[in-house]
Design a protein around this nucleic acid. Sequence first.
DNA 1: CTCTATAATCAAGATACTTGATTTTCGAGA
DNA 2: TCTCGAAAATCAAGTATCTTGATTATAGAG
Lengths: 158, 158
Amino acid sequence: MADSKKDELKQQVIIGAREYGIGSVLFRHMVGEKLGVNVTDMECLGLIFLKGLATPSELGRYAGLSSGATTAMLDRLEKSGLIERRPNPNDRRSTLIAIVQARAAQIAPLFASLRQAQDALLSSYSEAELEVLVDFFRRSVVMWEEEREKLSKKQTEE
Amino acid sequence: MADSKKDELKQQVIIGAREYGIGSVLFRHMVGEKLGVNVTDMECLGLIFLKGLATPSELGRYAGLSSGATTAMLDRLEKSGLIERRPNPNDRRSTLIAIVQARAAQIAPLFASLRQAQDALLSSYSEAELEVLVDFFRRSVVMWEEEREKLSKKQTEE
DNA sequence: CTCTATAATCAAGATACTTGATTTTCGAGA
DNA sequence: TCTCGAAAATCAAGTATCTTGATTATAGAG
């Protein structure tokens, strides 16, 4: 029981990270409601916001969609004027999805308070502490990638 | 530009946290594939795993489902033998959803490597550093809650 | 002890998703 | 350079999932 305190802290981090994810998912759902888009479309829209540009394949992979469903999802978002399909200069089979600039300005207010709150929260940490956070996320992202790789190779044994 | 370094760190934390969430979503999708359940059902299953017990309302809220879709989702998971509905002693209108123990043992191997990797990653931090992480998540969870509250009250003005 | 609100369920109709085929382009190798 | 298998996006038909509105049962406020 020597390390029980550290073990407990580790457990709290794991659960805390999961709850953080849940909180952010619920927030995006609510934004989606305001925008009148469904859960799938909102998740993709969120990813496009984060990345600036994204390919359909990428979005489909993230949302767990087939290629057909991905096309349909983009059709919906395009029809509602939220995104646009642009040519992908690196691959003419593909397209690049972007937020329509005019709509982005209308959407921004929904995130204004969030941004402020996030900024205020993070400002309370020292640079050294922030670096701990950055380091944790950076290494974790790599870990998730590795674990997906392992899982995909794992046979559905017995 | 005095605080540009700290500002950049803050930005990296925000993006890092989002990418962490994306990584974990993709991982769960893959687990869902292995188990033969769709994305919605897998997200709910993940939440049940985290919480131990959950009510249908809670799961529906998390997955962004109507009450009817929630019932259907539970029917599917129940029929596939993954979860069971138990009476809720605190509210007889409700039920408590739990993982079927026998199946939990079969599912655990899918998470074994992940748990190890998470443990190894977190072990590399000092207790003080872990406390920074725990604190960040704890406060962020509250922030998400507050921001959802604000957003729900926000009129779709102009 | 009402009465309103909330939890879960169900059935019918609407929406979104999967599958398989098609078109276009990429990139590896002869 | 040219071929050819693979990958990106799209489409149409069939299937699965979701929403809506009604229903039943219970909780909790007054």
